[in-house]
């Protein structure tokens, strides 16, 4: 039974079952389970954390401790398009701050925020390793390099028009 103040009663914990069946008895799999759970739900709802805790024999405190340690894990739903803006050195030297500013101007969101229409989430992430194309951002699984404010506006407009 869920002991928390469920924020979202629409979470279907059955979706998690195959993941738990596969990993809950493999020691050291907590992070893998959470990654899979995030794949399923888009983020880690509280109910899921409790479910993972009870299935793996961990306390919720331990699961929460692990989940909050890693930047990959999110505790709120994200937008349809997750913009991951690279914060690497090369990107910094080549003006990633200006890109963040442009995104902020265009969408009104800063790091970790989601637009009101639920379309975009901005997440400033560690180096994506595409330094030669800096500044770089990744939207969902697609990488965009050699960004300029103009190019960013075009990309955003294109994604907006798609929806």
């Amino acid at each position: 039974m869920c002991k928390c103040n469920c924020s979202d009663s629409n979470i279907d914990l059955n979706l998690l079952k195959p993941v738990l069946d596969k990993y809950s008895n493999v020691k050291g799999s907590l992070i893998t389970i959470l990654q899979n759970a995030q794949e399923i739900y888009g983020y880690l709802p509280t109910e899921v954390i409790y479910e993972v805790a009870s299935a793996t024999g961990n306390t919720p405190a331990k699961v929460m401790g692990v989940a909050t340690f890693y930047t990959q894990f999110r505790f709120k739903p994200v937008g349809k398009y997750l913009i991951m803006l690279c914060q690497g050195t090369a990107c910094h030297v080549n003006g990633s701050e200006m890109i963040a500013q442009t995104i902020n101007e265009e969408l009104g969101i800063s790091d970790g925020e989601t637009t009101d229409d639920g379309l975009f989430t901005l997440s400033c992430v560690a180096c994506l390793g595409c330094c030669s194309l800096s500044p770089v951002m990744m939207i969902n699984d697609e990488t965009y390099g050699s960004l300029t404010p103009k190019k960013v506006r075009e990309i955003i407009a294109e994604l907006k028009s798609r929806s």
Binding site: C4, T46, T59, K62
Partner: peptide, 18 residues
């Protein structure tokens, strides 16, 4: 195991569960 570290770096806190 009720208490745990939450978060990372300077903003790390200790919390009971959630």
């Amino acid at each position: 195991g009720i208490l745990g570290f939450v978060g990372r770096g300077f903003s790390t806190v200790i919390k009971p569960e959630f």
